[in-house]
């Protein structure tokens, strides 16, 4: 299915950009007329994915984070968060709640939060190459079928 609208963002993996990333994706998702809860869901999930890029993908350097978001006709919203960082050795293990390689203040809940706030999550990763997280959510509001030229 072809999206009715898309955006592409490229940002540096600086923690100060976390709020910019989630706010921007949420502002784009607003075209689907989501309710407050749905917007918070997207914001939270994007915040987790972007934080992962910053703390895990590029732990010792500033790299690029690529965000691609798409709106589909049936109210479906898709966000892809991609990095070219160090990748994940064991994706299944990384997605286990409370599992973290960092300890300290990281709760190990990033993926668990993304899973609970989205309808679908896909994680593709290659050590040394990078990681792509795809989040999907169906919004209950009006569908994006009206004219948006």
């Amino acid at each position: 299915m072809k999206p009715v609208n898309t955006i592409k963002l490229e940002l540096e993996s600086r923690s100060v950009n976390e709020s910019f990333a989630r706010a921007t994706v949420a502002a784009f998702a607003a075209q689907l007329d989501p309710n407050v809860e749905e917007i918070s869901d997207i914001k939270t999930a994007v915040s987790e994915a972007v934080t992962n890029c910053i703390v895990h993908a590029y732990p010792d350097c500033v790299g690029k984070i690529y965000i691609y978001a798409a709106i589909y006709e049936n109210g479906k919203f898709k966000v892809k968060i991609k990095d070219k960082g160090k990748g994940i050795e064991d994706v299944e293990k990384a997605m286990e709640p409370l599992y973290t390689t960092l300890g300290g203040e990281r709760a190990g809940l990033g993926f668990a939060v993304m899973e609970s706030f989205c309808d679908k999550i896909k994680v593709k990763s290659k050590p040394g190459k990078g990681t792509t997280v795809t989040l999907e959510k169906i919004f209950s509001g009006r569908s994006a079928t009206d004219d948006r030229s």
Binding site: R22, S40, K43, T44, S47, E48, T51, G104, E105, R106, A107, L109, G110, A112, V113
Partner: peptide, 11 residues
Amino acid sequence: FMDSSGIGFVL
């Protein structure tokens, strides 16, 4: 707004 960093904060 809070993401899992808020949980880490409480922990």
